[in-house]
Design a protein around this nucleic acid. Sequence first.
DNA 1: ATAGGATGTGAACGGCGATTCACATCTGGA
DNA 2: TCCAGATGTGAATCGCCGTTCACATCCTAT
Lengths: 211, 211
Amino acid sequence: MGTNKKATGVRRQEMASAALHLISERGLNGLSVARIARHVGLVPSAIYRHFKSKDEVLDAVYDLIEGKMISNLREAWSSSPETVDRLHLLLRLNIRMIIEFPAIPRLAFGEGIYGTHPERRTRMYRLIRNYLSQIQRAVALAQRRSELRSDVPASVIAASFWGLIPPAALLWSASEGSYDISTLVEREWTLFEEIATLHRHRHGTKAVGNN
Amino acid sequence: MGTNKKATGVRRQEMASAALHLISERGLNGLSVARIARHVGLVPSAIYRHFKSKDEVLDAVYDLIEGKMISNLREAWSSSPETVDRLHLLLRLNIRMIIEFPAIPRLAFGEGIYGTHPERRTRMYRLIRNYLSQIQRAVALAQRRSELRSDVPASVIAASFWGLIPPAALLWSASEGSYDISTLVEREWTLFEEIATLHRHRHGTKAVGNN
DNA sequence: ATAGGATGTGAACGGCGATTCACATCTGGA
DNA sequence: TCCAGATGTGAATCGCCGTTCACATCCTAT
């Protein structure tokens, strides 16, 4: 039966995307070569025309995720000259991404990729570290411009910002979507913004200020 | 060969504990009945003397985790009358627990438990919610005592506190232990404490206070 | 001390999923 | 146009894993 044939570049995209969706719906355990194939309208063995193994499909999924994260970063950065506004948008973009693809936080936690391929965990780690250091660089710049407080290391502020995302992802994931993640994150963002823009210049860190 | 026989209560403990360790090392995918058995020094079929199925073992693992979390809560609460000190200890206890059992955050993210048993995800969600509401109650009390600022809802402060844990778990998990999680968390705790103890009483939430 | 239930063993079954292979069909470039 | 390589198919293989079962051994209550 002549199913439409497509170039391998297209197919790889389709298959990786199908895999990402399937992981989002069924989890990594529910991801089988057969299901990927069915989702694309093909037969299991067809996968091997475009990937050497199932693991390679997973690698492609990681490429997808990496691409999405980078594109979020770009979009946020081009949206405004104000660091605070950029971070706020970046936060919202990431939340939106996680809502659309719950697979992403799951893969980030490295589940299911252990004995087989520790390299993949390393890769996710590098990705996160890169993300963090980009944010940190932005924070440092904003500190020099006095947009953010500078009595706290940029790395800590960056980590605090990034730290808003995983808990939200966890609650979203565990609640099966019933938790109102967006407003929660917005409220926490407000706190973050407040503390990040405190214009103090202390030296003693034992700051417990009543004013 | 007379391997030592033990009462089923003891064996269940051993097996659940072995499963928790195995998930911590190999991930949920690497968890097989055979491996659990070997880890306890028995033969695969022996598992079925004490559990009806592999799923029941997983249930026991969840019991273990729930017990650990509750015991952390108790220990922190009995340590000091000061809410802030209690929270600080609770944070450290949780971090210690995660370092010892990386399986816990993974299971919290619900990986691998999808099509088969959505109830388990629900259970983890309830556990987290309970945790959050206990913290929230403590925060509310502390607010009434003016130990914590009261111009922000207790739920938000509680969420911010709890939110310190998942990112730390993620970095720890992804970095394979190389990331210095404890000092990171301590620094973030400092920020949290600072913002949670700001004694202000505003009504407009647009608080961006230079003082 | 001994019977009977509880615990442990080894072999076997059945299913599922990843992968391979020989064969069919399509498609792009000379 | 036409062929050669690229793409898709269906069946078969192989290994792993959960589970069952008949049998052996141990422990405990009477």
